[in-house]
């Protein structure tokens, strides 16, 4: 049978690999090194073969490639079929997906076809002493974390939030590329793609920013919001938000951090006028250094802060901008 295999689904759209696939290769590599397994990357698309070397450099021992015109753009049914056939012949022990819009549609359909277990939106993965995959899943707005196991069914499947695993450094490595030939009767009966419309992201993507300045309802006005954008610009970072600023129209939906938004793990997070509800905290908890500014000394955000600043952001932010620009009045 050989060594057990950990599979990572590599999401690509128009031959650009989504970062979460690389992050998962890093995690899979780490699990494989403790558990004595091999890491395989699953790459589906049309003309994607040249991406295989990159995947090897990010930690794959094997790249299984299905290169076929019917696999671009992504469609749910043919993707499910190719992956299910590969799983049935090669019997992976673990299979991981990014919890992207594509991953959360594809993974459950595949799990149902294989009649195995799948956990959703994991924030961490470990192996226990018996080699079972421990899948850490946030629940109830992130206030609790459940550990899920799939003791008997294989593969053990999980989707993982983008941005929570560290993307590894690519290194020269060697690996094996194995073609997967989709069967003749590829199921093309489902919905047909009429159009894929892309909106180019205007700003630095939140998920990869090293500094995130996040604003909450306590920012108070569109003018206040402008100052946060200026602060983020000065620090080379991105602006994130809680839900109320999105509802108010100060920020866009793409900027929301938390359970129903994005997960960020910047080196520095500055939370301004944010109360610290668990719905938001679950999306920023992994930041390296957390600064919080709030008028309420009992605000919950202070419980997850390295530096808790009790004060009015309307006074502090303009002064901070002056300080950082080196324009402080000498009194």
């Amino acid at each position: 049978m050989g060594e057990p295999q950990i599979w990572v689904f590599i999401e690509q759209r128009r031959n650009v690999v989504h970062d979460v696939g690389l992050e998962l290769l890093g995690k899979a590599r780490e699990l494989a090194n403790t558990g004595g397994a091999r890491v395989a990357a699953l790459l589906l698309g049309d003309g994607v073969l040249p991406l295989a070397d990159t995947l090897i450099s990010f930690g794959a021992d094997i790249v299984l490639v299905a290169d076929h015109p019917a696999l671009e753009p992504y469609r749910l049914l043919p993707y499910t079929q190719v992956l299910a056939e590969a799983c049935r012949t090669r019997q992976p022990d673990i299979m991981l997906f990014g919890a992207t819009s594509l991953g959360v549609e594809l993974a459950p359909r595949l799990a149902a076809r294989l009649k195995t277990g799948l956990s959703a939106h994991c924030i961490d993965l470990q192996l226990d002493a018996d080699g079972h995959l421990l899948q850490m899943v946030p629940g109830w707005g992130g206030g609790v974390v459940a550990t899920i196991k799939t003791p008997e069914h294989r593969p053990q499947m999980a989707t993982v939030m983008p941005g929570v695993m560290q993307k590894p450094q690519p290194a020269p490595r060697s690996g094996q590329v194995i073609p997967l030939t989709p069967s003749e009767d590829l199921d093309l009966s489902g919905p047909r793609v009429l159009e894929v419309h892309r909106e180019e992201p205007q700003e630095l993507p939140l998920e990869t920013a090293e500094v995130v300045v996040a604003g909450g309802f306590g920012v108070g006005s569109p003018e206040g919001w402008k100052l946060l954008e200026e602060l983020a610009r000065l620090l080379g970072g991105a602006v994130g938000a809680t839900r109320p600023p999105v509802d108010e129209g100060w920020a866009s939906e793409e900027q929301m951090i938390g359970q129903s938004g994005k997960t960020v793990r910047p080196r520095l997070y500055i939370g301004v006028g944010i109360s610290g509800m668990s719905h938001h905290v679950v999306g920023m908890d992994e930041a390296e250094f957390v600064v919080a500014i709030n008028t309420d000394p009992k605000a919950a955000i202070f419980e997850v802060a390295d530096l808790a600043i009790v004060g009015d952001q309307r006074e502090i932010i303009p002064l901070l901008l002056d300080e950082l620009r080196g324009r402080v009045k000498v009194s």
Binding site: G139, V145, A146, T147, E303, A305, L307
Partner: peptide
């Protein structure tokens, strides 16, 4: 097929320095 092995309240190991 999936079983819950454990459930924990999230703990937060932060420095918690106050600045006033």
């Amino acid at each position: 097929p999936t079983k819950m092995a454990d459930m924990l309240l999230r703990e937060k190991g932060r420095q918690g320095l106050r600045l006033e």
